[in-house]
């Protein structure tokens, strides 16, 4: 059932609230990239993808791969809100015996399509799923979310080449272009730009959007769906730490959980946000 953009924005805010709570409770994790990808994950799970939380292995389902696996708190929150598992489970993140591992483990968590965490592998896995879809003549789509630093991995470009070669128009990749990686600014560590011309040269349909703008995410997904023969990459300009003022654009919040005080401040800000 189609949701309004306002409803989706409210869900994205809920996901951000859960990310902050989970990471604070866990005492470790990656808030910056989880917050930057939250709107894309919301759009996919609550509007774009065909999937059934009651039947997670439904063969016709659209697949989502979080290749930047360290941002899985955003995905866990979405899975819980969809009903794949109890929301209460979110507070067990990263703890002993929790199905919610620090990085995605498909053997432990319902709703995950692959295990990930070592960067650069997800797009290849997505190619395999997309090839299987074509081979089985099923019309499901495969979505892969990568980080901007992640595409420094050579395997991403091997995968990019093969997706175009096999005309995987059922494959759609997002680059969460938040401009920061652990050691600093992406452009200083190992510049990945110009992204448009790189992906175009690799044979992809390239869209460039504000990846924290719900309307733009939805429109880009519809455009990707209607593209024939070529895979689509959506270069999503985002803000690391989006939604929490003192985390926005701060590289220090890549892999450091908020303190209790920071958590309260963040939750207050998120709740006061006007949607």
């Amino acid at each position: 059932m189609a949701k309004s953009v306002i409803e989706l924005k409210k869900i994205a805010r809920k996901i951000r609230v859960l990310i902050i709570k989970m990471l604070t409770e866990a005492g470790s994790g990656h808030p910056g990239g989880s917050l930057s990808i939250a709107d894309i994950i919301t759009a996919l799970y609550f509007e774009i993808m065909n999937h059934d939380p009651k039947n997670p292995k439904w063969p016709q389902r659209d697949r989502f791969i979080l290749s930047k696996g360290h941002c899985v708190p955003a995905q866990y929150a979405a899975l819980a809100l969809c009903g794949y598992f109890d929301e209460e489970l979110l507070m067990t993140l990263r703890k002993f015996n929790s199905p919610l591992q620090g990085h995605p483990d498909m053997t432990r968590t319902t709703g995950l399509e692959i295990s990930s965490g070592s960067l650069g592998q997800g797009l290849s896995v997505g190619c395999g799923m997309a090839i299987a879809g074509k081979y089985d003549q099923k019309d499901y789509r495969v979505y892969v979310a990568m980080g901007d630093g992640e595409i420094q991995e050579g395997q991403v470009w091997e995968a990019a080449m093969s997706a175009a070669h096999y005309k995987l128009d059922n494959l759609c990749a997002f680059i969460d272009y938040n401009k920061l990686q652990i050691d600093g600014k992406v452009e200083d560590i190992m510049n990945v730009s110009p992204l448009q011309s790189k992906w175009t040269a690799f044979g992809w349909n390239v869209l460039e959007i504000d990846g924290n703008n719900m309307e733009e995410i939805l429109n880009a997904c519809y455009k990707a769906k209607n593209t024939k023969d070529n895979p689509t990459v959506i270069i999503a300009h985002t803000t690391k730490g989006k939604g929490v003022s003192f985390m926005e654009g701060v590289v220090g919040f890549h892999g450091v959980a908020p303190t209790k005080e920071e958590c309260e401040k963040a939750l207050k800000e998120l709740q006061e946000e006007v949607i």
Partner: peptide, 14 residues
């Protein structure tokens, strides 16, 4: 590397 990843993806689809 890409071949192994794609194999994994195919394997998730039975």
């Amino acid at each position: 590397a890409n071949m192994i990843g794609a194999a994994a993806g195919l394997a998730t689809c039975n």
